[in-house]
Design a protein around this nucleic acid. Structure first.
Lengths: 237, 237
DNA sequence: TGCCGTCTCGCCATTTTTGGGGAGTTGGAA
DNA sequence: TTCCAACTCCCCAAAAATGGCGAGACGGCA
């Protein structure tokens, strides 16, 4: 068993096209004998990527109906770190139940298990499995394979990120220590006056730092600069 | 081998105190025969947690000297999703080399391997290994154990989060769609006027959103709100 | 020695943001 | 039905941020 998984993961590591990810996910599906597996990025902005075994009709419907904002799997996973069984999510809202009904009608199983994955720049992805079976069977399956699945999910994410050129952060001029101080304090809510006082420099000097940081970060205003510094990991809050 | 690892991971799952994490990391260290292992959260603000086998002197020195801002392991891992060998990081700056020298003098090995881990609310943690050996030996070791180590790192993070009451109960009220729109556009550098125009609402209405978002996020001003929304993964840029 | 980047300071005018009020609609939940 | 959250709009005045001008000191690097 494990040997076979290793083979699939190895194949994944060698993948040089998105195509290979699709093949790998199909292989995994067959290997574990589950109805569906899906890997996809979750992002409010345009850039999207996903592969999996859901029917195209369902995928399109999901996008068209903006189910991203309804799907309890999304909202549930966004707030947690570890994998979760769909049974344990909050399906109480009317919209969620309507979504669930629609999903099952489009071939999604009654059982599910999702692994949230987080990367740099707030990147968030999901690796989900879905199947039709009883609660007990599903619990046994997820319990048995949880570790492997976590690994699989992470390998998928790594590969998907590697294959996507636009995702890697663009290098920017490094900020000077003072500039970092300024950005950091601004990010935690200090006003310019407070930052200047904290750093025991004049407010004008502070302005120079903020402006040069803004320039280096290619930012349009202070908020933008702080957002970029955060996103690029230049500052940590 | 694997059986033994399972035992350690199982012990980790049962852990109900930070103490157990410390014991687990020491056990892992002995199991793999590496000099040091460390798990710690990365955050410039107050909340800190870490456990590991570095000498206390070094840990204190690290904090005191604010090496967090210099350490290439931190900045390097922040930008990437997958584990990284310390050799592949950028040690070119003078500050980085001084840091490295200091680290080695305090018992840190010449080789290292770090696994970045990300959780909800922008949580970021590192699981690092350090050892004294040749490049070839280290490469062989990391290649062999990479998968296990990824798992170990994630189990550590899960447990550390579970044990920390102050970490998860930060369930800030979810933002409404419009509030998210506003925060997102502000984060990409739009001025209020531009955001209002983009959303085709009056600037005043926009203000209402920004203010309520600020309230929900417990932020002191717009920049702070955007920073928090980013850090918590509520918005993605 | 000259150049460059970092750190430090000041003033004025304009634009932008914020804080304080109040008010109406809609649609879903209790 | 009643209530609440979300969405929409308006005015005024104060506070904060930005743009543009200039200037000196320090330390590293070529």
């Amino acid at each position: 068993m494990t040997q076979r998984l290793d083979t699939i993961l190895h194949g994944l590591e060698q993948a040089d096209q998105h195509d290979a990810l699709q093949r790998a996910i199909e292989a995994l599906c067959a290997f574990y004998g589950v109805d569906h597996m899906v890997y996809h990025w979750v992002s409010s902005s345009g850039e999207q990527y996903g592969c999996g075994t859901y029917e195209d009709v369902w995928v399109e419907r999901y996008i068209e109906k903006k189910y991203l904002r309804v799907d309890p799997v999304i909202s549930g996973c966004y707030q947690r770190f570890h994998p979760v069984d769909w049974k344990r999510l909050d399906w109480s809202s009317k919209a969620a139940r309507a979504f669930q009904k629609d999903a099952i009608e489009h071939g999604v199983g009654n059982q599910g298990f999702s692994i949230p994955i987080r990367g740099p720049n707030g990147q968030f992805a999901l690796f989900s499995l879905s199947h039709n079976c009883t609660d007990d069977e599903w619990d046994a399956f997820t319990e048995t394979n949880r570790r492997d699945l976590i690994l699989v999910a992470h390998y998928f994410n790594k590969k998907a990120l590697d294959l996507e050129p636009g995702r890697s952060p663009e290098p920017s001029q490094p900020l000077s220590p003072r500039e970092i101080d300024a950005m950091t304090l601004l990010a935690v809510g200090y006003s310019r006056a407070q930052v200047a006082e904290t750093l025991t420099i004049s407010e004008h000097t502070l302005r120079v730092y903020i402006e040069s940081a803004r320039f280096k970060l290619g930012a349009l205003n202070t908020t933008h600069a702080v957002a970029r510094a955060l996103a690029r990991g230049i500052i940590v809050v």
